[in-house]
Amino acid sequence: MSLNTRRRGADLEDAILDAAWAVLIDSGYNGFTFEAIAARAGTSRPVLYRRWPHRDDLLVATLRRHWASRPIEVPDTGSLRADAIGFLRNVDQGRTGLMTLISAQLVEYFRATGTNFRDLRDSLRPPGQPTGFARIVGRAVERGEIPDVTRSPRIIDLPFDLFRNEMLMTMRPVSTEWITETVDLIWLPLLRAT
């Protein structure tokens, strides 16, 4: 590549992150090396090292870009139940494939770093941004649908945690029936009991 056509700045970073995503998908965490990514991006390893000194820094940047490019709409229907069901349906449509893939491809990352999917998810979320279910519960409190009491984040995010478990156990989209039962029979009674 000549000096006049050499990529720089955002163009180069986009090419690197696209290449890194492709390497992660194709080869998993074990194959996620600076050498493989540089070759796929058509650049050199020192270019990557200057931006991301450690492989895990590049991994998080790659996941953040691809996670953020698939935002999940948090419905605001005026109903706690409808918002919760709608949000889980949106997650199912927008993230099931990505979550399954990430979970499978990052087993070695979680093992090597002693972290888990929750830790990774929290590092990808912009600082201070509440979870989708925290927003849904907050709006329901403002509308007077449920009492304004302190609730554990585990209770607030329980539908998502159960959803993720169901999705990982079945490795396929989660049914509308499962979503409705989880909201109606488990989460809403638990929220109202606290």
Rank of each mutant, 00 (worst) to 15 (best):
S79E: 04
V23S: 00
L190N: 05
T170W: 10
L158S: 14
R172E: 07
I179K: 00
A10H: 13
G86F: 09
N165G: 13
F87P: 05
L17C: 07
A38K: 01
R50I: 11
I25P: 01
Q93C: 10
D11W: 12
V183P: 09
R64S: 14
G132M: 05
A41T: 00
A84N: 02
W187G: 12
L185T: 15
L63I: 08
N30V: 15
A20F: 02
D14R: 13
L168T: 04
I186E: 09
G28V: 03
N4V: 15
L12D: 02
A39S: 07
F34L: 09
A140I: 12
D57F: 09
T113R: 11
P147M: 04
T170C: 03
R121W: 15
L120Q: 01
D119M: 13
P189W: 08
D122Q: 15
R135I: 14
L98G: 06
D76Y: 08
L158V: 13
H66N: 10
R121G: 15
L158I: 10
P173F: 08
I25S: 03
D76Q: 11
L101A: 07
P71A: 08
W21V: 03
R50G: 11
R50K: 12
A112H: 00
D161F: 14
N30T: 14
G144R: 03
G42T: 02
R40L: 06
A10W: 12
R135L: 15
I16C: 05
D184P: 03
N4R: 14
D92V: 11
Y29D: 07
A68F: 12
D76K: 09
P53F: 11
V149T: 07
G128A: 03
P53S: 13
A10I: 15
D157H: 05
L190G: 10
T182H: 01
N90I: 07
A193S: 09
P173S: 09
I155N: 06
M169W: 08
W67S: 12
G128W: 00
R139Y: 06
E145M: 07
H66P: 06
I102W: 11
G86L: 09
M171F: 14
D56E: 14
W187V: 12
D119L: 12
D14E: 12
N4M: 14
I25M: 06
R95Y: 07
F160D: 01
G28E: 00
E181G: 13
G28N: 03
